[in-house]
Design a protein around this nucleic acid. Sequence first.
DNA 1: ATAATTGCAAACACTTTGCACCTGT
DNA 2: ACAGGTGCAAAGTGTTTGCAATTAT
Lengths: 133, 133
Amino acid sequence: MKYHTKQRDAVLRFFMDHGDRCFTAREVYEQVDAGEATVFRAIAGLTESGLLNKYVSGSARSDSATYQYNPCGDRADHIHLKCERCGELIHMDCSFMATILSHFLDEHGFAVDCGKTVIYGLCENCREEGKHA
Amino acid sequence: MKYHTKQRDAVLRFFMDHGDRCFTAREVYEQVDAGEATVFRAIAGLTESGLLNKYVSGSARSDSATYQYNPCGDRADHIHLKCERCGELIHMDCSFMATILSHFLDEHGFAVDCGKTVIYGLCENCREEGKHA
DNA sequence: ATAATTGCAAACACTTTGCACCTGT
DNA sequence: ACAGGTGCAAAGTGTTTGCAATTAT
């Protein structure tokens, strides 16, 4: 990741221009002028440096990882909640966060990496919908 | 899943006998007398019926889904902490869990899906090592 | 100039499937 | 007897990698 190339630029710009959505590597490849391997490599790099968040959904087959632009950069100080149904990304930035992080650290000796942690579940709206489905 | 077969029995028994650990399909296949496809089919069935929980953590390659026996019935009841350094998977099964889940639900309207949620960070040992590295 | 990056295709790992044969009821 | 299950090997997916050609510095 030392040179600046138009391919990597295009990939990053694509994610920034659609910061509200998640994309699979294939989707990016289809809309950006770069080889598939290059897209994967670019995404890997961007994820590594914290500019993208990576999400893994559940179903095994034909279900690839999706990526989304992370405007918070790599020093995120809050955890993301991701709705498995509508895909909404909720930024959990309340005071209880500190309590949770402290608990993990004190009781489990575990230092949470907020930048890479995503909590999956169902958001309020989707839970409501589920009740009537 | 209408007939009772020794293969499916063996798979279920394997998980029950090692209820404290997670296993990939391959690991089960290596220790149980059944074909690979059969193991996958058995695991899928058991997961479907709630006897096993499925966990997805990383990318597709060299990081496959893991499964664990779920004595409680049909839903996962603990979150996984995964060390980014040594890869250890910690099962967070303490009482504070309920508090955390309640908070997410009450304050954020968010129903956490324990089965798919993995919290990344550094475990105790790796944090110690980091200090001296 | 030269070290990094690209892109293709081939390799890979995990999982599913087609199909002939075997088993549980 | 026959619906349902098994197992092999082959097909699929999503992702990674080897390497010659290309590009950024």
